Amino acid sequence: MASENVVIRAARPGDCEEILRMIKELAVYEKMPEKATLTEEALRDDAFGDQPYYRALVAEVGSNLTDRTKLIGYAMYYFCYCPWLGRGIYLEDFYVEPAHRGRGIGTSIMKEVAKIGVKHRCNKMQWVCLNWNDVAVKFYQKHGGKDVTVEEKWHLFRMDQQELAAFARE
């Protein structure tokens, strides 16, 4: 096998097709493929339009023997605010292709998001994880993540588009 070099970099508009491919792979893994309805155009507009709603990093692998590169992972994040602590960074989505796991790529991506948070004077980084994903839970705990569901007894609530629109009309 050819030697590969992995680079973690900010996503560019041309990366959206590959990011969407990985989002769909993650949705299959999370047993919710029907929920991944986002389009490449929306993904691009929402990150690179006039008012970005998220930012992303990608992991790109290139071979020493060719000039070809391939995206093998990504992290989507955005800044948030906590009235108790102030600035925060929210890790919305995080994925490394299965064939490239166990080589420190996920740690490198997550560490880059953490560095961005520190650079922007964030007081916390937050994310969610499915309760059955023991591999991810152990990964996050290994890197200092705390399960606030257990420790602080928080519940995460959500309104999807239909509920949001109905509530707004009331």
Rank of each mutant, 00 (worst) to 15 (best):
E4T: 10
E4V: 05
E4Y: 06
V7M: 14
I8L: 11
I8P: 02
I8A: 03
A10F: 14
A11C: 01
R12H: 10
R12D: 05
R12N: 02
P13R: 02
G14V: 06
G14M: 09
G14K: 11
C16M: 14
C16Q: 01
E17F: 00
E17P: 01
E18D: 08
E18Y: 00
I19E: 04
L20I: 05
L20S: 03
L20C: 12
R21K: 14
R21S: 03
R21N: 04
M22N: 08
I23V: 10
E25A: 14
L26C: 14
L26T: 12
A27G: 09
A27R: 01
A27D: 08
Y29C: 04
Y29K: 03
Y29R: 06
E30Y: 04
K31S: 15
M32P: 04
M32H: 14
M32D: 01
M32F: 07
P33I: 03
P33K: 07
E34Q: 15
E34G: 04
E34H: 10
K35M: 06
K35G: 04
A36E: 10
T37I: 08
T37C: 10
L38D: 10
L38F: 05
T39S: 14
E40G: 02
E40P: 01
E41L: 05
E41G: 03
A42E: 11
A42P: 02
L43H: 04
R44S: 10
R44G: 09
R44V: 10
D45C: 06
D45I: 01
D46Q: 12
D46V: 05
D46C: 02
A47Y: 05
F48D: 04
F48G: 04
G49D: 06
Q51Y: 06
Q51K: 14
Y53I: 15
Y54L: 15
Y54N: 09
R55A: 09
R55P: 00
R55V: 01
R55D: 12
L57G: 05
L57N: 07
V58A: 08
A59S: 07
A59V: 03
A59W: 01
A59C: 06
E60S: 12
V61W: 05
V61E: 09
V61I: 15
G62Y: 13
G62L: 05
S63H: 09
S63V: 09
N64M: 15
N64Y: 14
